[in-house]
Design a protein around this nucleic acid. Structure first.
Lengths: 112, 112
DNA sequence: AATAATACATAATTTTCTTAGGTATATAAA
DNA sequence: TTTATATACCTAAGAAAATTATGTATTATT
């Protein structure tokens, strides 16, 4: 688990990347997917996640589809057509930022 | 210039890396060095820098040496012996975080 | 029956940064 | 010579983003 300081500012980028790749996901699913993919090193908190999802929806970047699963609701989020562009830009900007930080901190990243 | 959101949480790491490599630097020098090294993509603001330097000093991670240059003062910061360990840990943690983000966002970093 | 997991949400507080200002000296340009 | 720019420190009010702590409710497991 990384110090929360490090993860600051990455939430929107992570959400938009996952939703770009997965067509539709719901909040609870996002937190678990991120935890799984990072081996528990990044754990999104609901207090940060839900307000961010709501904000992205209000900005027209995400759209929602509320589904009933038994007696429980599940709110699926998808990237809107106009949101796709924003998502790509966010990820690209983060990628450039990483390159800058790798240079600045003189790091040797593992290449996948 | 990256969106400020992206840079959030990286200030301490940047400061500690620069001071680890450069023995001693003063605040104004740090902002200019970072701007120079990143081609203007990262510009530290004084309102963020100085309080952080003061906090790191209060924590015993940095020590200061005030020098008179003409009639002006210049406050040099250095990493203390015990601070060296903190600095290394910070940079290492950031390095691991980068690897995690590269995997999570499916990025291909430039290798230096 | 009690606990954990699923699934949503908000509100108070804290952390961190931005914006905007303040002080003062030295240098370059108009 | 006055004005602007650069050097060099600093703080305080406010905004932004996250944490922590709750709250509601259903479903599955022990």
């Amino acid at each position: 688990m990384y110090s929360s300081e490090l993860i600051k500012g990455t939430l929107k980028t992570i959400i938009l990347k996952l939703l770009s790749d997965n067509d539709k996901m719901y909040g609870y699913e996002i937190t678990h997917k991120v935890k799984e993919l990072t081996g528990g090193k990044i754990q999104l908190t609901e207090g940060a996640l839900y307000p961010t999802l709501h904000a992205l929806e209000a900005q027209g970047i995400l759209s929602t589809d509320v589904v009933n699963v038994g007696n429980r609701i599940r709110k699926y989020y998808s990237v809107t057509p106009s949101g796709k562009k924003v998502a790509t830009e966010k990820v690209n900007e983060f990628s450039e930022f990483l390159d800058t930080m790798i240079f600045l901190l003189d790091l040797q990243p593992k290449v996948g």
